[in-house]
Simulated assay, not measured.
Amino acid sequence: MNRRKRWVNRGVQAAWRWLDRAGEIVPGTRAGDAFGHLGEGSCIGFPAATLMGVGSIHIGSRTLIGRQVTLSVGYGPDDTNVPERALVIGDRCVIGARTSLTAHSSITVGDDVWFGQDVFVSDASHGYQELETPIGQQLGVHQPVVVGAGSWVGHGAIILPGTTIGRNVVVAAGSVVRGTVEDYAVVGGAPARVLRRYEPGVGWATASGDVRPVLPPLLATEPVAVQS
């Protein structure tokens, strides 16, 4: 690479780093103040994919939301028929890059929930029963979604309308989840099924009898750096 190209590349990289920092949505910025709530120490990476209906989006403190994420409420930017708290994300969450959270009625993500990248969550789908109406114009019913505190949702997972995920649940990468998932379970597959669950006095057990012991909690240390 000749000297001119090296300098151009260096300038572009420096400009992008500046935009990356300057474009973040944090409390106290104009974009941040438009949210229903954006807690102290929280950040939405730059650039975002789609931010819509942000007045009905409430985000707790110290939550990191990655780049190119979609956070949307309602059926369009002019939709005024939306709940005040349609999309709620708790404290200390991590939402991976390119994740999409699309709420029409209610999506609630508890504290300390970590999402991998490319996760999709929605509380509504489309209908299919009207013969002459295009499928995309057949609006489905709204079914609230809850992701319990302390859970981990792996890369590329899909959480469908009407799903309730319990506390400290692991959702394996690429899973499609619908229905109710009990606390302290590991689920995976499409559709997702329980692969391992906590049995008091036994440990983390599979149906075939493989058991992993329950370990003591980790001691508090310095915060872990997370790639968004």
Rank of each mutant, 00 (worst) to 15 (best):
L219V: 10
L139Y: 12
S72C: 06
N2V: 10
V121A: 05
F120C: 03
G28P: 10
N9E: 15
S208I: 02
R92H: 15
T80H: 10
V176E: 05
G53H: 02
S106W: 13
E130Q: 14
W18N: 07
A15E: 12
V176F: 03
A173P: 02
T133P: 03
P217S: 07
S125F: 12
A14G: 10
I59L: 07
D33H: 09
G189F: 07
A48V: 04
R178K: 15
G45F: 08
L87R: 00
V176I: 15
E40C: 07
A157C: 11
D183G: 02
A205I: 11
V121R: 02
E24T: 09
R197F: 07
R178F: 05
G156I: 12
S100P: 04
F115P: 01
G203L: 03
D91G: 02
L195W: 06
T108Q: 08
S42R: 02
I158L: 13
A49Y: 06
L160F: 06
V26Y: 13
R212T: 08
H142N: 12
L131N: 10
G36N: 06
D79V: 11
L160T: 08
V26G: 08
V194A: 02
L131C: 10
T63V: 04
A173E: 04
I89T: 02
L19E: 10
W152S: 04
N9K: 12
L218E: 15
F115A: 00
T163N: 00
V214F: 01
V69W: 03
V109N: 04
V73W: 06
G76I: 11
G148C: 08
G53M: 00
T108C: 11
R30K: 13
L139C: 11
V194P: 00
T99C: 14
Q227L: 12
S122M: 09
S100F: 05
T63L: 01
R67L: 09
P83H: 02
V88G: 01
E199D: 12
A185W: 08
G189A: 09
V171D: 07
W7D: 10
A97S: 09
D111Y: 07
R4I: 13
L64T: 15
L71T: 00
A97N: 14
G174F: 00
V171P: 03
G39Q: 11
G76L: 07
D33P: 08
I57F: 01
A86S: 06
G201H: 06
I25W: 03
A49C: 09
V224A: 15
D78P: 03
S56Q: 04
I95Q: 03
G140F: 02
S56I: 07
Q137K: 14
V186D: 05
R21Q: 12
G150E: 10
L19H: 13
P83F: 04
R67I: 10
E40T: 14
V119N: 00
V224N: 04
W114T: 14
V94P: 06
T80D: 11
S100H: 13
A34N: 11
G150F: 05
V121E: 02
S56Y: 02
E24V: 10
P27Y: 10
L87I: 06
R21A: 15
S56P: 00
R167D: 01
V211I: 14
T70V: 11
D20F: 11
T133K: 13
